[in-house]
Amino acid sequence: MVSGRSEVMTIVTAVFFGISLTTVLTRCFVRLRVVRAFGWDDTLMVIAMIMNTGFAICGFFGAYYGIGKRLEYFLFHSDSFHKALFCWWLGQVFYIITCIVAKTSIILSLLRITVNRIHIVILYAAMALNMLVGVLFFFFTIFQCTPVSHFWNRLDLDSGKCIDVWVLIDIAYLYSVGAAITDFTIGILPAFMIWNLRMSRRDKIAVIGVLSLGCIASAAVIVRIPYIQHYADRQFLYKTINIAIWSNIEGGLGITAGSLTTLRPLIRFFREASTDSHSYSRNPGSYPLSSTLGNNTPYQQSKLEQEHDDAQHLWPGNRDAESFGVRTVVLGNGRIAAAPAASSSEEELNPHAHTVMGSRELGRMRKG
């Protein structure tokens, strides 16, 4: 039965798994249904969630078999000892992959909205550091024992051998420091990327706050560092429970923070869904002339629209736009020109990619 510290691990794992799964599913809805732009960063985040699911399953079974229990417990549950160790080992493998892939997804999202060369270099450096320390820790975790199965069959002293545990601890420290640096980089850099954009101060603070949620995951990494030394403890499964708990928190927060930055279009989706029920019906493939200023009036982009353009670029799809909407503008000479839509309130949620207006609407405009 799950009890004591094992119960705490089960609860924490369930909570952060549920939160991360909800945000990823919502992200998929937004990217597939609302903005219709599913990119590589979205694919990587889905992979990270799959790995996090494996990590959570290992946590649940590990807590059931004895992670968080003292050695005395296994005097009466000897069959559970190697199962608990196997769940610990496999869970660490899933954890490392989850963090590597999730952080890579976040970095790719930031790379898509930055144009400053220095910021790009910093992001690529953070990605390289994330992969370097992650892959190093990954291979040391898997192959710390020869054969690999000796990790969970260590009661049989003749089944193999393991490397010096302090070598693994040093690698774990190195990974934790590298992970913390990466998290702080992708958490703090958005403030420098956004501050000079044409946006209101309130919008800047809101966007920076969302994009900087990665700093929260780095806090979990830092909190976990003092417990790494317990890898060498005789009461391994009992002493390392805090490592398992904070690893779950780190993975769940990283995935959640990376997915929250993509959910902004969801607000527009529900707003337009509610307003459409009170507005006039539109023919399929047609677009409103809400941005037309009138005959003989040239179109000029206002400061408000310029600020909206900068804000819009923070949430791009594969083509650096949230949709394929088109704005129709009446020029001074009476001609009709099509330009990319800048205002998200003018976008159809299900537009036809290259259609400006229906033939009847164009005929009426020409006669007008």
Rank of each mutant, 00 (worst) to 15 (best):
S274A: 15
L189T: 11
A191N: 08
T262M: 07
I249L: 00
R201T: 15
L331S: 12
V46L: 11
T261W: 00
N296P: 05
L189A: 06
M9W: 04
R198G: 10
R31L: 06
P265E: 05
E307L: 04
I163W: 11
T22F: 13
A353V: 14
G285T: 07
W166Q: 14
H352K: 10
Y95N: 08
L44P: 00
V223A: 07
S78H: 08
A128D: 09
W152T: 14
S286L: 05
A14S: 15
T13E: 11
A48D: 08
V167R: 09
F184E: 10
S20V: 06
S78V: 15
N296Q: 14
S277I: 14
K69F: 07
L168Q: 08
L349F: 03
S279A: 15
L331P: 01
H354D: 10
L155W: 05
Q92F: 04
G62K: 00
D310W: 01
S176N: 14
H119S: 13
G251D: 01
F139K: 01
V356I: 14
M199K: 01
I163D: 13
I120V: 15
D183H: 07
N295K: 06
L110W: 02
G258L: 05
A341L: 09
S359M: 07
V177E: 12
H352Q: 12
F86M: 13
G209V: 08
K103Y: 05
H230L: 04
H77T: 08
Y73V: 08
M1D: 10
E7D: 15
I205W: 09
I205E: 07
G294W: 07
S323G: 11
T256S: 07
I106N: 01
R319W: 11
Y238E: 12
A14Y: 05
N283Y: 09
F192K: 04
V329I: 12
F17Q: 02
A219W: 06
